[in-house]
């Protein structure tokens, strides 16, 4: 990256360009001992317990989609980022930027979805901000939410904590949200009733996991860039290798169908209600059994393990049982046709 370049869509896609941008611009200027590479910063005020603190901006086109809307998404995103640090979400703020001409009824629906989702996650929306912008200055509505959570006493998951031998669990079928948005934009004329967003608040799930074990090494929600991106992030942050069994990754028929139509790979499509969890192998059965009892993780599956060799890389067993590298995620997802 050089200062002659301009920002491209790929810089927001969650892959290598995004991490370069963060490294070379934001980290350069913001670096301090509390700045985090995880989903939320874990901080201590007055030395009494730990809090997790995070923020997330939401732009999604279209702002309504099968399975949710931008309001639900904006609560789930921040709640899940806190949950990934083992933190009980307590307080949220939300800032709206709304384009002139936006229908009031739709704004009401969005706020209602936020109310419902916040209630489910047990979090209070305690502060807000409203800005409007002229027609064409933004795409309809943007929401930013910021959240504070209380870190459970027995929780210290971090992207740096993956250890050799850990089992890697994904909490459900992958790629649903990304696929849903792709179809909702209706650029490709594809209909798929079964493809709906997996968008869900996951604090309840995480809380139950910490009730069955203290030994959860890593939790990360597979949003932008999907599960493939999370695996590369953890391999790099923990300095370990990851062995993925591509045959074990749950993918719904609908997502598989869309992927084969457009030449896409479900592992790189965004999820909004899926966690990737690293636990010691001896905890695997317990965690999996608990996950399968929770409402959003009935299809949880073990998809791989952590290895000492191949540090920083994700090696996968393919459908024919051969071993090869999982390609590094990167760039904007583009349909491959011709």
């Amino acid at each position: 990256m050089t200062m002659e370049e301009t920002v491209t869509l790929a810089h927001g896609a969650g892959g290598k360009q995004t991490s370069d941008l963060i490294e070379q611009i934001f980290k350069k200027h913001f670096s301090n001992p509390d700045l985090t590479a995880d989903d939320a910063a874990v901080l201590s005020l007055n030395g009494r317990g730990k809090i997790a603190f995070t923020t997330d901006g939401f732009i999604v086109s279209p702002y309504e989609f099968p399975g949710g809307n931008i309001g639900k998404l904006s609560i789930c995103g921040t709640v899940n980022d806190l949950a990934c640090m083992g933190a009980r979400p307590r307080y949220l703020s939300c800032a709206f930027v709304i384009e002139e001409g936006f229908p009031m009824a739709k704004l009401n629906e969005i706020a209602s979805a936020m109310e419902k989702t916040a209630a489910e996650a047990g979090v209070r929306i305690v502060a807000g901000d409203t800005k409007t912008a002229g027609k064409g200055q933004l795409d309809k509505i943007f929401i930013t939410t910021t959240g504070i959570g209380e870190v459970l006493e027995n929780a210290s998951p971090s992207g740096k904590n993956a250890r050799e031998g850990d089992s890697i669990i994904v909490t459900g079928d992958v790629g649903r949200h990304g696929c849903t948005i792709l179809l909702a934009r209706n650029e490709f004329g594809i209909q798929a009733e079964d493809v709906t967003s997996d968008c869900a608040p996951l604090w309840g799930t995480v809380e139950r996991l910490f009730q069955v074990t203290d030994r959860i090494h890593v939790i990360r929600d597979a949003t932008r860039g999907g599960v493939g991106t999370v695996l590369y992030e953890i391999a790099s942050e923990s300095g370990v290798g990851i062995h993925l069994d591509s045959r074990a990754v749950p993918v719904s028929d609908g997502v598989r169908g869309v992927c084969s139509m457009l030449g896409l790979e479900a592992l790189y499509l965004a999820c909004e209600g899926r966690l990737v969890i690293f636990v010691p192998q001896e905890e695997e059965a317990k965690v999996l059994a608990e996950l399968r009892k929770c409402p959003y993780s009935g299809n949880a599956a073990v998809i791989g393990k952590v290895t000492k060799e191949n540090a920083g890389k994700v090696v996968m067993t393919t459908e024919i049982g051969a071993e090869t590298l999982l390609p590094r995620p990167g760039g904007e997802l583009l349909p491959r046709i011709c």
Partner: peptide, 8 residues
């Protein structure tokens, strides 16, 4: 129809 995914 391909696994529930439809297109004209």
């Amino acid at each position: 129809d391909a696994s529930g995914v439809k297109r004209k």
